[in-house]
Structures are given as structure tokens and as C-alpha cells.
């Protein structure tokens, strides 16, 4: 591994994404990307007693599915990086307590999935592991309870709010095998735009996204047009527009090939999801479903995947703190 520029890392041996899996809930099933997910459920409880149990089942089944697809024996997978949005990452640790793979619970809010892939790539390129599994999940109902109000309150959602995706995505990364390759890592810095509205997280994260994106271009000497597509997740409609403007103000035009996973996963008009999707499960399921499939069909050869997170909790919101954002990017090439 070689450091390039200020904060990017070029892997000596590109890490292969040998398999992915995605499972989503009923609202995502009605969305435009339905056909790309491995499984789309009718019941947000998935037969469980609570939403938290359901979310644990999402991540457990997704990880199992990704490992099964990879054709790598579970005992040959040496590390697991997983995270979610609930207090102390209980969806991941409860869901994966029987997996029997050394486990790192990580939190990067909605950036968790790519955070995990960066750590996994470093572990593999650094010869600490050969095969690593990454996953993250979110659930609309448990996230509303965690960050805003319990659904039983019957609260109205303001127009700037995003819709937490019910779903999970998982990827198996390996030194060997075939699949799209992770070539460059650009982990992001914490950027605080001073936004205090927990219902407008896209705006809170856009600054971090711009920082990581522009740093990536500067570090690597690449330009937006070098990529077939640039995906952020999950800035939503408001954050997406802010990022386009911020990039343009620094001389990078990303309008042509940039999109946001939170924008893609729902149909804004038909599904009334306000500012788009969000949550750890959003970029995880969109990457594991849609983007990975596009690589398989050879429609994409080079993609920049950048996950953004709003690093707040309900206590910090109540105490009037602003919302620091973060964004992690990886370059994936066929």
C-alpha cells in the first residue's frame, strides 16, 4: 500500500469484491431498484417480534448470503467489519453473534459500509487477512425510534427529512478470486458545516462529501470524467445538489456522471419519501444490489463509491449540537 497525496492510499494488490448480497424491506421493494436486490420482503418485521430483531435478521441473512455466494468456506473468512445505526451497534452484534468470525463492530453512521470496506482492504493489502466480510444495515422503524420519534407517536415528517432505508448489504472481499477491484482508498475527515437540524442531514453531510471528493481528485490526479459513475450515499436530493454546487465552485463538474444512492433507491414522486433515502443500509444495499450488478454486466468499469455519514445521536441533537459529517471514498475498477 502506498500513500498518495494527503489522505489517499493506493493498494499494492487490488482487493477483489468476490460477492455481495442485499436484502431490503417493503418500501424498497416498491422502489425503482427492486429487481437488483437479492431479496425484498413484504413484512418489515420479517416474522420477528420487534424491529430491532428484524434488523438483526436482515444483517445476519445478508452476511450468510454473501458468504454462500462467494464460495469461500465460512471458516476461511478471517475478519468481519459490520455496523448499523442502533445504540452500541446491536443490530450487527446481535445479528452476527453466531457467525464465528472475528468481529469488529464499527460506527460511521451511513458511511459505515464503505468504512468497513476500507478497513477490510487495508487488512487484506496489509497481509493480515485473505478473506474479509463487510456489512451494514438499517431499519426505518428502529432508526426513527433511535434518532427522531417512535412511530407509535404518529409524527409527521418534515419535507427536508430523508427516509431511512430498511435493508442490509454485505460484501466479501478477498485477496484472491475474481470480481470488481478496490484500488484506491480515500478515508475522510470529520467536517462540521454547523447544521443543527436532524431532519436535514443531507446538508450536514455535503461538506464532508465535498472535502473527501475533492481530496480524492487532488490526491490521485483523477478528474470526474475518469469515472463511469460517482455514487454518494446518502445525501438525498438536498445534499446532492449542495455537493454538485460545492464541487463546481472548486472547478470540478460532476453533474454528468454523479448520483446519490438515497436518490436512486426510492421514487420521490410515487413514494413520497421527501428528500430521499438514508441509513447504513442504503448505500450498502444499492452497492451490493444495483452497482455490483452493473459491474457484472460490464456497464461500469470504474466507479467512485463515497459513503457519507452524519455523526450525531439523539442526545447531541437535544443538546443543540451541530451535526458533524464524514465521507469515505473507494475507487472500484473492473
Amino acid at each position: 500500500m502506498k500513500k498518495v497525496g494527503n489522505q489517499s492510499f493506493l493498494l499494492s494488490n487490488p482487493v477483489k469484491i468476490v460477492s455481495t448480497a442485499s436484502i431490503v424491506g417493503p418500501k424498497e421493494k416498491e422502489g425503482p431498484l427492486c429487481e437488483f436486490f437479492d431479496q425484498a420482503l413484504e413484512d418489515e418485521f420479517w416474522g420477528e417480534k420487534s424491529w430491532e430483531k428484524a434488523e438483526s435478521k436482515f444483517i445476519k441473512e445478508t452476511v450468510n448470503m454473501a458468504i454462500a455466494k462467494s464460495k469461500i468456506a465460512q471458516t476461511d473468512i478471517e475478519l468481519c467489519f459490520a455496523g448499523d445505526l442502533l445504540n452500541q451497534c446491536i443490530s450487527s452484534s446481535f445479528g452476527l453473534r453466531e457467525i464465528n468470525i472475528p468481529f469488529f463492530g464499527i460506527f460511521g453512521a451511513c458511511s459505515t459500509f464503505v468504512e468497513g470496506m476500507i478497513l477490510a482492504s487495508m487488512a487484506i493489502d496489509g497481509d493480515f487477512a485473505t478473506n474479509v466480510v463487510c456489512a451494514s444495515s438499517s431499519h426505518f422503524c428502529s432508526a426513527e425510534k433511535q434518532f427522531r420519534f417512535p412511530l407509535e407517536l404518529g409524527n409527521q415528517r418534515p419535507p427536508s427529512s430523508q427516509w431511512t432505508v430498511t435493508g442490509s448489504g454485505s460484501a466479501v472481499l478477498s485477496k484472491n478470486g475474481t470480481g470488481p477491484k478496490i484500488t484506491i482508498l480515500t478515508p475522510g475527515k470529520i467536517v462540521d458545516m454547523g447544521i443543527k437540524d436532524a431532519n436535514n442531514m443531507g446538508a450536514a453531510m455535503a461538506g464532508a462529501a465535498a472535502d473527501t471528493l475533492l481530496t480524492h481528485f487532488k490526491d490521485t490526479g483523477r478528474k470526474p470524467s475518469d469515472y463511469d459513475a460517482i455514487f454518494s450515499g446518502d445525501l438525498g436530493y438536498i445534499g446532492k445538489d449542495i455537493l454538485i454546487d460545492l464541487a463546481a465552485s472548486k472547478g470540478y463538474n460532476i453533474r454528468a456522471n454523479y448520483n446519490d444512492c438515497g436518490v436512486l433507491i426510492f421514487d420521490k414522486e410515487k413514494q413520497d419519501t421527501h428528500s430521499g433515502g438514508s441509513g447504513c443500509g442504503c448505500i450498502a444495499s444499492v452497492f451490493s444490489g444495483y452497482i455490483y450488478q452493473m459491474f457484472q454486466e460490464k456497464k461500469y468499469k470504474k466507479v467512485l463509491l463515497m459513503a457519507t455519514g452524519a455523526l450525531m445521536n439523539s442526545t447531541s441533537s437535544q443538546q443543540g449540537e451541530s451535526i458533524p459529517g464524514i465521507a469515505h471514498a473507494i475507487s472500484i475498477e473492473a
Partner: peptide, 12 residues
């Protein structure tokens, strides 16, 4: 109400 009903996901 909590005895006879179960919370559901919002439709919008």
C-alpha cells in the same frame, strides 16, 4: 390500544 394493536411502518 397497545394491547390490541401492533405498530406498523409508515406509508409516507
Amino acid at each position: 390500544a397497545s394491547l390490541v394493536s401492533k405498530p406498523k411502518i409508515k406509508k409516507q
